[in-house]
Design a protein around this nucleic acid. Structure first.
Lengths: 150, 150
DNA sequence: GTAATTGCAAAGGATTTGCTCTGGT
DNA sequence: ACCAGAGCAAATCCTTTGCAATTAC
């Protein structure tokens, strides 16, 4: 009995493998968010054949460990990127170009906890997403018509 | 050939139908976000049998028309709610029994706008969801739900 | 040696599309 | 009548799971 949360066959982070190292390298090399598939492709491009399943498994493990950030994009994909800070933070995303900025708000965290406590809620967690049009996109006169087909 | 954007068989908003009215009614009745399936089930509960496909089609059309807001939740579902043109409130939801409390936070609204402005973002909107375990549920059978991040 | 890990094949779940029938105007 | 709209069935897309083979330690 080691970890009651672990299911057989699913990845954890106990042993160092070629695949884990390769994925970590790609995550390090890319500053922004990437979908699991993009990471998978990038690994191939680097000559590191890592199974898509493994990419997903590792990504999930990393998210649980808080080492990677996961965000759902409008088209249904989950995009990942290495966390810049281990702290809890939120994202400010541009609805046109997708540029994302990590922001922190102690006030918000506090407010959320306070509200929850006030109503007798415990084990609270929250999600806050801010979407807007970034300066460049707003200036470029580009309409927010990035909404094309999926 | 009237609307070049429209594909055959897909819903628009030209004719009034029983289904559209039913969906609109449910959206009106529920202040918060609901998944397509929840709306579908709610319609059934009301004795209004509307196909799930139709719910999806209408929801999509409404989102495109800007009458409904769509947000992706962490578990992969898209949740919808009628757009409110005024100050919106947030929801504090119990992860066990689903009890929901409406809360308002002028500070948060302000903070979000401030953050966005600070980074040069305009036309900002945000979504905030707080999830926890309410008093009753915490007192009763507790679960080791480890939902984090957000 | 042995449990952790990989990754193919297949399953799953949400959402969309093909297509045909229904119904609003 | 005529075409927007409804909705079943099947297809898609992203992600997870079953499980046998592989590999780190």
């Amino acid at each position: 009995m080691s970890d009651p949360e672990r299911r057989p066959g699913r990845a954890a982070t106990e042993r160092s493998t070629r695949q884990k190292r390769a994925l970590a390298a790609v995550l390090d090399a890319t500053g922004g968010f990437r979908s699991a598939n993009e990471l998978f492709l990038e690994l191939r491009a680097r000559g590191q054949n890592v199974g898509l399943t493994t990419v997903y498994n590792q990504l999930r493990a990393l998210v649980e460990l808080g080492e990677v950030d996961a965000v759902r994009s409008d088209d249904g994909e989950t995009r990942y990127r290495r966390c810049e800070t281990g702290l809890h933070h939120h994202h400010l995303t541009c609805r046109v170009c997708g540029r994302t900025v990590e922001i922190q708000g102690p006030e918000v965290e506090h407010w959320a906890d306070e509200m929850a406590a006030e109503h007798g809620y415990v084990e609270v967690s929250h999600t806050l997403e801010i979407v807007g049009t970034c300066g460049s996109c707003a200036a470029g006169g580009r309409r927010g018509a990035s909404r094309s087909a999926g």
